[in-house]
């Protein structure tokens, strides 16, 4: 998709500030503290429009916390998070909701509402944020369910009747309900078999291309990193180091070296090439 098409898809609710440019997310000087423990210390991150960014890091380095801070679910101790050119802390409630309507989130196990069917889950954001006629709402829900790679009859099922992989797809359908600009994924392939994981990667890549999404994913899956991520952000020493796979392969930092040159990293790269 050409860049002008992407900006035209969803013009900002009000005039975009000058900092939007090519970056849909800008994090500046982020500090996260849990009691005496400092998780992030002056962390900066830029996410470019239309890219797939993978966030990696060791256990307990605060990958999921960073995601939650970008989403506004946790407030950082200091620093600024700008999404689509808006400083999330300074927005009024209604403005924040309109920005949130332009983001979709897939939580680790789908986080589907267990008392609703899959179709009802997908319809929740549509009913909440649009005035579509009911018939069209359910048709759109069906389209999204299909786009997420689920069979049409899955819409009538409850989350408890689905396998883990199907729950993720259903969660993806709900995340895509409002045609978001940015899609956040928290460990999208965790708990999937290799074939299912590869199919899910491909699905995300296809959707990202056809819908012009910006994807920001936390992942441990080296195959996802090598096959679909344009850039990789490594959480290390309480900061972030961003680069393409090729750049990070040459990074001298011992953890990064171990991560990409360890046996699993080598295998994933071999599989890719």
């Amino acid at each position: 998709m050409a860049p002008d098409d992407q900006t035209a898809r969803h013009p900002a609710p009000d005039a975009p500030s000058s900092s939007e440019g090519d970056f849909v997310i800008r994090v500046r000087g982020l500090v996260t503290r849990f009691g005496p423990q400092v998780l992030h210390d002056g962390l900066d991150l830029d996410v470019r429009r239309g890219e797939v960014l993978g966030i990696v890091g060791g256990s307990g380095t605060g990958k999921s916390v960073l995601l939650k801070e970008i989403l506004g679910l946790i407030h950082p101790a200091a620093g600024r998070v700008e999404m689509l050119g808006h400083d999330m802390e300074r927005l009024s409630d209604s403005e924040r909701i309109s920005v949130q309507a332009r983001t979709g989130v897939l939580f680790q196990d789908g986080a589907l509402f267990s008392s609703m069917t899959v179709a009802e889950n997908v319809m929740v954001p549509l009913k909440e944020h649009t005035d579509l006629p009911p018939q069209l709402t359910s048709e759109i829900a069906r389209v999204k369910i299909g786009m997420a790679g689920l069979p049409p009859n899955a819409g009538r099922k409850y989350p408890s009747e689905l396998s883990g992989g199907m729950r993720k797809r259903a969660g993806l359908a709900r995340a895509l309900a409002l045609d978001p600009d940015i899609l956040f994924l928290d460990e999208p392939t965790a708990g999937l078999d290799p074939i299912g994981a590869a199919a899910f990667d491909q699905l995300i890549r296809n959707l990202q291309r056809s819908l012009g999404l910006t994807v920001c994913m936390v992942t441990h899956d080296l195959d996802s990193l090598t096959s679909i991520c344009d850039r990789i952000a490594v959480l290390i020493d309480k900061k972030i180091r961003v680069g393409t796979l090729a750049e990070l392969l040459d990074d001298p930092h011992p953890w990064i070296h171990e991560y990409f040159h360890g046996p699993r990293g080598r295998a994933a790269r071999r599989a890719e090439s």
């Binding site: 389209v143 369910i145 786009m147 056809s210 819908l211 012009g212």
Partner: peptide, 15 residues
Amino acid sequence: AHAALFDAVRGTGCA
């Protein structure tokens, strides 16, 4: 730029 989107929607077989 839009063709892929049509494919994505039609590919669902739900149209």
